[in-house]
Every structure is written in C-alpha cells, then in structure tokens.
Simulated scan of single mutants.
Amino acid sequence: MLKIKKLEHRFIRSIPRELDVGVIYISMEYATAVHCCCCGCGEQVVTPFSPTDWKMIYDGESVSLTPSIGNWYSACRSHYIIKQDIIIEVGSWNDAQITAERKRDKLAKAHYYNPSAKPPNLEEEMKDTSRQLSRDLGVMGNLLGWLRNLIRKN
C-alpha cells in the first residue's frame, strides 16, 4: 500500500541533498527527476529522461512520468505510475517479469545507442515473456495466451 498519493512538483537546477517526502524534484538541465519512494520506505527514486528511459510530461499545471516506476532493487519493490501529480499503484511484478523487462530494456538501449547493430528481436522477446508469464500464471496465463492469439488473428 502506497503512503504517498500525490506529489508536488518542483523544477530546480540541481537535486538537493535532502529530499522532502511528497515532492518530485525535476532538473531539466540534468534531464532527471528524483523523489522519495511513494511507499514511504524513504528510498530515493531517480528517473532519468531519455528516449530509452523515462519521459516527463508537464502540462502547465502537473507532471506525469512514463513508463511506470518499478523499484525492483529496493526492499519495498513498489510499482506505481505518476500521472498529473497523482500516484497510481499498479500490480507488483514477479521475478520473471522483472528479468524480462530488464532484458528488453538492455536490448532497447543497445539498439538505440548503436543503431548499426542488429536490432533486437522484441517480438521474440515478448513471446518468451508471454510464455514465462503463462507458466507463472497457470489458468490465467492460458487465458491470456488465448486472448493474445485471438487479437493477433484479428
């Protein structure tokens, strides 16, 4: 359960040494945002902005970050989305999901920073992830696989 439900955004030049809970500090100069984990554990969460990391959207009143924030290296393993300064808790991931996402992220970065390299086969990566999730989820996994195949046919 997340303790922080909303963040106040502050645009700053450099990240302060001490972070206030409930505040997301955004440095456009360093293309990074930092905040205390919204579960309340106190861990600092760093979200660099780049084509292969996070994207920050400022609509003139609020801040959104995409994709979601998964604190897989922290003990809390919290997972949430920041949308218009509001924190939306999303489901926890299992180890297979985390491993698959780290692999996908690594491949995407390698391809982005070295476009002459053979592009990653993300479709095959997704199939592997889907197979692993099906094994992990049992009956629900079979249903997800069936839905995936149905969508592909249409």
Rank of each mutant, 00 (worst) to 15 (best):
W93I: 03
Y30D: 11
R10Y: 00
G138Q: 09
K5M: 11
I81V: 13
A108N: 07
I57W: 13
I81G: 02
R10L: 02
Y30C: 14
N154W: 03
G70D: 02
Y113I: 04
Q97H: 05
R148T: 03
Y58H: 07
H35S: 03
I87D: 00
A33D: 00
E61Y: 09
G40Q: 10
W72N: 14
R77L: 11
D128Y: 13
T99H: 14
Y113S: 02
H79Y: 04
Y80E: 01
T99F: 04
P115L: 03
S64W: 05
C76G: 10
I88D: 01
S62H: 06
M56A: 11
M126P: 10
R10Q: 09
I81Q: 04
P120Y: 12
R10E: 02
P16C: 11
K83S: 02
P120S: 09
R148L: 15
P115H: 06
S50R: 04
Y30I: 11
M56L: 11
P67K: 08
V23M: 07
A31V: 12
K83D: 01
R102V: 13
T129V: 11
R148A: 07
H35T: 03
R17F: 10
G141T: 01
N149C: 07
S116D: 09
P67M: 04
Q132T: 14
E124D: 12
A108V: 12
L137P: 10
K118A: 03
S74M: 11
L137Y: 13
K5I: 04
C36R: 02
S27Y: 02
I151W: 08
R13Y: 15
K106V: 13
S78W: 03
A75D: 06
V90S: 06
K6D: 06
V139Q: 09
E89H: 06
A75Y: 10
E101Y: 08
V90I: 08
I87C: 02
I151Y: 11
N121I: 01
S62E: 04
V63F: 00
G145K: 06
S27G: 12
K127I: 10
Q44S: 11
R152Q: 14
A75L: 14
R131P: 00
K55M: 08
E123I: 05
A108D: 01
D136L: 06
R13N: 10
L2G: 02
Q132C: 11
N114F: 04
E123W: 14
S116K: 15
K103S: 05
S50W: 09
P51L: 02
E125M: 07
R77S: 07
R77G: 02
C38W: 00
V63R: 00
W93S: 08
D105E: 15
T99C: 15
C76N: 04
P16F: 06
I151R: 05
Y113K: 09
L107A: 15
T129Y: 03
E43M: 06
H79G: 02
W72V: 07
L137E: 01
D85L: 01
K6T: 14
R102E: 06
C38G: 04
E125N: 11
A100H: 13
L107S: 13
I98K: 08
T32K: 14
I81N: 07
N149P: 09
E61R: 01
V34P: 00
A33V: 03
P120E: 04
K118D: 15
C39M: 05
I82M: 01
F49H: 08
F49I: 10
K153T: 05
M126T: 12
N154R: 15
S64I: 05
A31Q: 14
S64R: 00
I87R: 01
M28N: 13
V21R: 08
T66E: 14
T32N: 00
I86R: 06
H35G: 04
